[in-house]
Design a protein around this nucleic acid. Structure first.
Lengths: 193, 193
DNA sequence: AGATAATATTGACCATGGTCAATATATAAA
DNA sequence: TTTATATATTGACCATGGTCAATATTATCT
């Protein structure tokens, strides 16, 4: 049986998270240093790793929170219909995902948890992403022959591809959303061309 | 004007690559250590970084070579027709891509070069992958309304998604190829369901 | 309150990737 | 061949993430 955590534990965790947010605000996600975070929090280095498996696990929490917030925002509006509206609705989420190359890498690495017990905020986010898109597609099905869940997985795959090409020297003639639009038009409305 | 490289330079590079291959054979890509590679090659540490920007750049070369070989093998057979044959033809390539989680991460990170001047073996491989698939799809077009290039980009996106889920604790009820099959059936033969 | 067990914190220490001024070697020019 | 210039190599050193036995604190039991 797990006891309830000490008050001190929660305080320390908050101190670390606050310090991390400050460090990220100042140096970006990639530039944030554990030593700096620990110093700002007024805590020993070992304490950091008693709270987070490693630096990336902290980033999982921080980035996951931003993704959750963006996802919340995306779901606050009306249900999008069609590729154009879907892309517009997801834009804030995709913005967070591509705010830094490092962030995108972390998101991909944490998108699928290696073990059930270590499903973190980013993995949770991906579940919400799929669910939301599936719900939207279920409300206004672009295709009758494929179930919304599979359609949503396709949207995710195409979105990731479009975002990845954002960081590519080649293929920069098209914007992320324009590229995604081409994919989704083909995915949603086959035979229409 | 760049002079032609010294004979010594090429020798040292080969020594490093041989040592790296040995280290990888023994400890895997992730477990390979720069200090070990350098020791095997009988060379100072600084020499390593005079030849490769960083450890990942060496991995780019090593992994890229394996991918190129697998791609070669994939193209040696007859032109595949339909989702099933396409997946079978690409299997050796996808095997290399998923041989280690670390390898998959590196491949994704290097899939799109950040700068034109730094297009490495893995980025080259992705170009070949798209070209080969586009050629195959052009020979036996599954859909008339979408051009083979875009179709091929979709195949890549779905393949990456299917492979990523390989490393995921959830979603393990389906194999990589079975999952990819579902995606491609929907991507290739809309309205057939 | 005092004794005991569980939990949290500490900081010296380690592992590993990466840097760079100094040095050595190879090539080109005289 | 000698000299000058470009290129390659060296290894001590640094930056950063991460470990763990020792210590301190908190919660629980009597």
């Amino acid at each position: 049986m797990a006891r309830k955590p000490q008050k001190r534990t929660l305080q320390t965790r908050e101190k670390l998270l606050d310090a991390a947010r400050a460090a990220v605000a100042e140096h970006g996600f990639e530039g944030a240093r554990v030593d700096d975070i620990v110093a700002r929090a007024g805590v020993a280095k070992g304490t950091f790793f008693a709270h987070f498996r490693d630096k990336d696990a902290l980033m999982d929490v921080l980035i996951g929170a931003q993704l959750a917030a963006a996802m919340e925002a995306a779901q606050s509006g009306p249900v999008p219909r069609g590729a154009k509206e879907l892309i517009a609705a997801l834009a804030p989420v995709h913005d967070v995902m591509t705010c830094e190359r490092y962030v995108f890498d972390i998101i991909l690495r944490y998108s699928g948890a290696a073990g059930i017990e270590q499903i973190g905020p980013i993995a949770m986010f991906f579940g919400q992403y799929i669910n939301a898109v599936a719900r939207w597609l279920g409300a206004h099905p672009p295709r009758a022959d494929v179930d919304p869940g599979l359609m949503a997985e396709g949207v995710q795959a195409f979105a990731v591809q479009a975002m990845a090409l954002t960081f590519c020297a080649l293929h920069q003639e098209q914007s992320r959303d324009a590229r995604l639009r081409r994919y989704l038009d083909a995915w949603f409305a086959p035979g229409a061309g």
